[in-house]
Design a protein around this nucleic acid. Sequence first.
DNA 1: CTGAAAGCGCTTACAG
DNA 2: CTGAAAGCGCTTACAG
Lengths: 354, 354
Amino acid sequence: MPEMTIKELARICGVAVSTVSRAMNDRSDVNPETRARIRAAAAQYGYVPNSSARRLKIGTTKTISVFIQGEFGQLLVEVLQQLELAFAQAGYDTTISHVADPEHANAGTVERIVREGKFGGVVFLGRYGSADREASAQLSRRLAEIDVPMVFCTTPDYSGTAALHSSISVDDHAGARELTAHLAALGHRRIAFVGAGAEPDREHAWALRLAGYRAGLKDAGIAPDDALVVASAVEEQAYTMRNGYESVSRWLTTAPKDVTALVAVCDAAAIGASRALSEAGLSVPADVSLVGFDGLDIANYFVPRLTTIVQPVPEIAQSTARVLLATMDEPGRAIEQVWIRGRLVPGDSVRALT
Amino acid sequence: MPEMTIKELARICGVAVSTVSRAMNDRSDVNPETRARIRAAAAQYGYVPNSSARRLKIGTTKTISVFIQGEFGQLLVEVLQQLELAFAQAGYDTTISHVADPEHANAGTVERIVREGKFGGVVFLGRYGSADREASAQLSRRLAEIDVPMVFCTTPDYSGTAALHSSISVDDHAGARELTAHLAALGHRRIAFVGAGAEPDREHAWALRLAGYRAGLKDAGIAPDDALVVASAVEEQAYTMRNGYESVSRWLTTAPKDVTALVAVCDAAAIGASRALSEAGLSVPADVSLVGFDGLDIANYFVPRLTTIVQPVPEIAQSTARVLLATMDEPGRAIEQVWIRGRLVPGDSVRALT
DNA sequence: CTGAAAGCGCTTACAG
DNA sequence: CTGAAAGCGCTTACAG
């Protein structure tokens, strides 16, 4: 196919290029018959407008870019699908910008948004920024200076004291608190948390979930015990089976023997933890109860079925789309922080002690 | 940031736009000092060339598009990451085109490639086309007419008798054959296959794996038995836990009682199968042995650890990159079909009967 | 409702 | 090594 241009099509149809342009773009100021004739010819000859030329003129596009950094699991894939759907319904194309190497891509990420620049809006999905707090905060601030509507989905805004961006996430704190309360209600008092980061933090999912766990303990009148907070062994891949496995394996050598339940930072970590327990001769839930967070498919198929908080993927995606589209319509719009409650789904991984 | 243009930067530097262009594109015919000066100014003022304008002039870009259709799991994510890496090393950007709805996007997919047109190359990752055989074959043929180098990774070329596209995959047939031989060597004779499609097929992964299973039975002198071929209950999501679960649950009501082992079409299906077995009071591997295919993380963390064929992700990605880049260099290049052997990794899900 | 013309920001022969 | 100029394919005021 020799890539027909608007000029050739105009010649074939015996009209001016401007008329072809109007017909192709469904402008009202074209004779319906002319338009039909041009569109028929376009279909026949396989004419497709050159999007680069178009973009160069227009400046902006009906395209929303979703940024994903580093590894991404089932959860993000699901959110992504639903986002694409929601944007498509609003007449926007979705393009995925995957930043493979999170550590070296911060400046690059920003630069790319500015350069390609022509996105109607941008979603940051999952984590973003680097492990370094200050660098992440700086990135967040630089992003805020760019004149493109953006929202953070499933990842917090690290800007610092004042939030600079809209964000939508599951309510990590409330979820972990509920899981902990659930365990306490079943008689557990010695409950550990698996997957804490090294530095204090109050924005990452692990930190919010850890805080929720602590709040849950407090609700139940249980004194916190640092020996029950299991640090991530593989911090740069905190939300993985491997981290759950290695963290718990290491911790078990010195763990208090009276622990009866584990709250894992996520389902994947819970599954890794389960293997570590099994290798240590401990069975779930007979010897130790175990809960996860996220509600992945695997939580439902794992043996035993994992008690977990199911992330409300449809609501998260819909809220994200709603906030972004609203901001695109009304650029000066106030930023919005949305926390959506997940649903606790009991499995077979928790034993009642009472 | 007011989006500086080449013209403004040229004025600031006191040179012609053509000189700026040469400096930014690292052409040899610029005075090194001039170039340094211009680049410094570009950095200082945050000038980034407008990619649309550039594309419009150049016609083609240093960008490779990876197409992913429908749902995608951990395996494709891993391949994707490695592809991005390989392309980056060759100086190419990677962009992901996710086609959310596989059934309705065939024509759209093609059109999009043609329209955006300016990709240096295209990779189809995972499945592509629709469930309908003829539609897929037609799509494959239409793709072959487009003047963009493309390769199929982890998905077959459905063109028909003569292959029209290069493709790279794990050797599904050899892998399933090896798994079956492995079971037979441990004394299993009544071995079932979980996840067969309804229509005869010789290109999809399930069909190749089913054929490999049959070859493995034959190698071991075991007569095939149709009652041991478990049809997919959820055919449009064949490679999922849900399909493994529902297929085996349904089949168990009428399954021969003497089955001692299951070959699942993939790890996810194996995990689903495991739950179905467990609900029927059958334990893995004490009552039934179970093997998967793919080598996902979960195979290694599941209890019991799953015996499986590990997909050689690095080799698959590297071969894909190599073939695509070679085709881009040499457009008339012969197509190439690469089948890479996976590695059988024994877990704890198989019991020796002898 | 339609056409002629300017111009989006860049690259690349063509002269010097 | 550098500059002036043409032109990539489109859209959009501006006239009619």
